[in-house]
Design a protein around this nucleic acid. Structure first.
Length: 561
DNA sequence: CTAGGGTTAG
């Protein structure tokens, strides 16, 4: 940098240099400065008599290589004002990238107009940047429009759209587009695979995920750090933790993200000891943990009920200079709550330096409900309703607090309020993958083509479960109806429909794997334990938070979830 | 000098 400033000074102290030489010299200095001190490069830009578009692009690129900054957008505005020099495809790509990083929706939309006006809209780089910008702003339809209007699409364009869908949570769209891509004859590469594997991880689609893994080997797609990490994550999120571990151990190089995936994987399976051992190994391997690693470690402690360890890792986190975020606080609150240290949890929340979010209050609320602390629960609910007056989940929770205390008057009142405000509960939904197809079951809905057979299986299961003395936990049903109807309602819970379908379509020793959008209720948990013993089947249920592995009447969570 | 990728509480 010192040399650069010397050259800069030299150029400026020779006023008789021809203008073109001056410009050229300063541009060269700017180029070198862009990555070292981008602000210096920006100053230089203003001193160059007639800067080329290349100079502007270089400074923009410099800003993009650093922390998120709107500078490239400002520079572009200058370009537009001065009408010189004219933008090229590189400029547009850089500015759009800046808009997606921030993200800056309005500026990006403006850029779309500039793209059209510039006549460079057909350029692949520009279009892909535009498409990526829209997905980062969660504008699925606008992104898809940009994609559909492309006259030619390469593997990058396809990957951008597939990955965009996956990140927006539109898993089926992502997987569907991957199939279309194959039909179109464009060969997927490692980047494409990472996006598709992530979509499988979200959907819990193990069979498809396994197929993709074979596909990678067969097509000799490079199994780099990102692909392997995505596979570890996918196997963990699809319930096959041993395979996740196997892929992880075979990785020649592991960075913080790879270690974090493995630790988080163990955590959601309730394998706290394994998660902590892996964290220790990570230390031995001299890989610095990041904030996500610590989320994994702390949530492992929470899932395992390890309070002392949780506190220990909390201080380790502070010592290693990781500033605790909402997620870290959430893990600690969860840790106290799961071990029924409600006062401790509440105090921890009150001492948070950042205002607690609804999720944190909900954690505390659920704990109050479990411990039948009606009064405290109402106080916590107040915080929740202040922050989120329009979230139906909060109404459901409060009414379940009253239901657990058999206070039907207050329960109905909450239900009525909910109805009056036009709010609907999110219905429970479970899915099971059979022969590569994901079958979805919604609570109480019998729209599946094989509904009749499923009913038969369920009534047989229900008979056998009751015969061994299962008492339905009817407090799980919120409706203010007779106990008989509550018993029936329990048998329509979505996970039972999915498990019944699994029993119907597969035979032992095939593992029944179910993914649920909400948490499992106490009664379903008990019933699934019984099914695993009575039918001698391993059943793995991924609920909204973690895994339950049912084998021979026991669950891996040891009734702690 | 340009576009697409992996880990994130409840």
């Amino acid at each position: 940098m010192r040399v650069l400033t010397q050259i800069h000074a030299h150029i400026l102290t020779h006023p008789n240099l021809p203008l073109s030489t001056l410009s050229f010299g300063l541009s060269k200095v700017l180029c070198f400065a862009a990555y070292r001190n981008v602000h210096y490069a920006k100053t230089l830009l203003s001193q160059i008599p007639y800067p080329t578009i290349f100079c502007y692009n270089t400074v923009m690129r410099g800003f993009l290589s650093q922390n998120p900054s709107p500078e490239p957008i400002f520079l572009f505005k200058k370009l537009v004002q001065r009408k010189f020099p004219l933008s090229n495809t590189f400029t547009l790509a850089f500015v759009l990238k800046c808009c997606s990083i921030l993200p800056a929706f309005d500026e990006g939309k403006q850029m779309h107009k500039h793209v059209i006006a510039s006549g460079l809209g057909k350029n692949l780089f520009v279009r892909t940047s535009l498409l990526n910008f829209y997905t980062k702003c969660e504008e699925a339809e606008l992104a898809r429009k940009v994609f559909d209007e492309m006259s030619e699409r390469n593997v990058v364009a396809w990957s951008a759209m597939i990955g965009g869908y996956a990140k927006m949570g539109m898993v089926n769209e992502a997987l569907g587009l991957f199939r279309e891509m194959q039909k179109s004859g464009i060969e997927p590469d490692g980047v494409t695979m990472v996006s598709v594997i992530s979509a499988c991880a979200m959907a819990g689609a193990l069979d498809l995920g396994k197929w993709l893994h074979t596909f990678i080997d067969k097509k000799r797609i490079k199994n780099d750090l990102e692909v392997s990490t995505a596979l570890v994550n996918m196997y963990a999120k699809c319930g096959w933790i041993q395979k996740a571990k196997e892929v992880f151990e075979a990785m020649p190089v592991k960075d913080a993200k790879a270690w974090s995936s493995m630790i988080v994987g163990f955590a959601i399976h309730g394998l706290a000891r394994e998660a902590l051992e892996t964290f220790a190994e990570m230390g031995k391997a001299k890989v610095e943990p990041n904030h996500v690693t610590l989320i994994g470690v702390l949530s492992a402690c929470a899932h395992g009920g390890l309070v002392a360890e949780g506190r220990k890792y909390w201080s380790i986190m502070l010592e290693s200079g990781i500033e605790p975020s909402m997620e870290h606080y959430g893990c600690m609150v969860d840790l106290f709550c799961r071990t029924n240290q409600i006062e401790e949890a509440h105090e921890f929340i009150n001492n948070m330096p950042i205002p607690p979010n609804p999720a944190i209050w909900r954690t505390l609320f659920v704990s109050c409900k479990k411990n039948k602390m009606l009064h405290k629960g109402e106080i916590v609910a107040n915080h929740l309703f202040q922050l989120e007056p329009h979230n139906p989940e909060n109404y459901i929770l409060l009414s379940s607090l009253y239901a657990s205390a058999s206070d039907w008057v207050k329960m109905s009142s909450v239900r009525r309020q909910m109805k009056e405000r036009g709010m609907k509960a999110i219905p429970g939904c479970s899915s099971i993958e059979i022969n590569g197809h994901v079958h979805e079951f919604v609570m109480g809905s019998w729209s599946h083509p094989e509904a009749k057979d499923i009913r038969e299986v369920l009534s047989e299961v229900s008979g056998r479960v009751q015969a061994i003395g299962h008492e339905p936990w009817i407090a799980a049903v919120l409706q203010n109806v007779g106990d008989g109807e509550k018993r029936d309602a329990l048998w329509e819970h979505s996970e039972r429909l999915a498990i019944a379908y699994g029993l119907l379509k597969t035979k032992a020793p095939v593992v029944i794997r179910v993914v649920k959008n909400l948490r499992v209720c106490v009664d379903c948990h008990e019933v699934t334990k019984s099914i695993s013993r009575l039918y001698n089947r391993e059943i793995i249920v991924r609920d909204r938070i973690r895994f339950h592995r049912f084998v021979d009447g026991e669950c891996s969570c040891q009734d702690f979830w």
